[in-house]
């Protein structure tokens, strides 16, 4: 499934990397622990987290993730968005909590 379909179906706000929306999403990984994401996420995964630390951009880049969904209406600091934009990482935002984003994506991708 393309990132753009996911953005549309669960009404995500795209904060950065708007040019990558045609990328394919290979699956979904949820974690707030960066070492966990480094160890267990797969290339092309979309990453759901409430972590907004600057290092999320590096993790997404290193693992070639298709995008980051920041949940729970978390504020994202400007430096994080700037870094994501310059590294061409798609950062999206939603007011929904991680459990519900996962639930909706699971129905969309596996249902």
């Amino acid at each position: 499934m393309k990132l753009s379909s996911i953005v549309e179906s669960i009404s995500l706000e795209v904060k950065t990397g708007k040019n990558n929306l045609q990328n394919d999403v290979t699956g979904v990984y949820i974690s707030d622990l960066l070492s966990d994401v480094m160890a267990n996420s797969k290339e092309g995964n979309i990453w759901i987290t409430l972590q907004t630390h600057l290092n999320i951009v590096a993790v997404a880049g290193l693992k070639n993730l298709s995008g980051i969904i920041i949940v729970g209406n978390r504020q994202i600091q400007q430096d994080v968005l700037q870094k994501a934009e310059s590294e061409k990482i798609t950062v999206m935002s939603t007011p929904l909590p991680a459990f519900e984003v996962a639930g909706k994506l699971y129905q969309l991708l596996n249902g």
Binding site: D32, L33, L34, S35, L50, Q51, T52, H53, N55, R74, Q75, I76, Q77
Partner: peptide, 20 residues
């Protein structure tokens, strides 16, 4: 006091704290 701002080191974040 800003939500999301944190000066916690990486190891603290890996323990589930430091989310700001």
């Amino acid at each position: 006091m800003q939500e999301g701002y944190s000066t916690a080191p990486d190891w603290v974040r890996e323990m589930g704290w430091g989310a700001g």
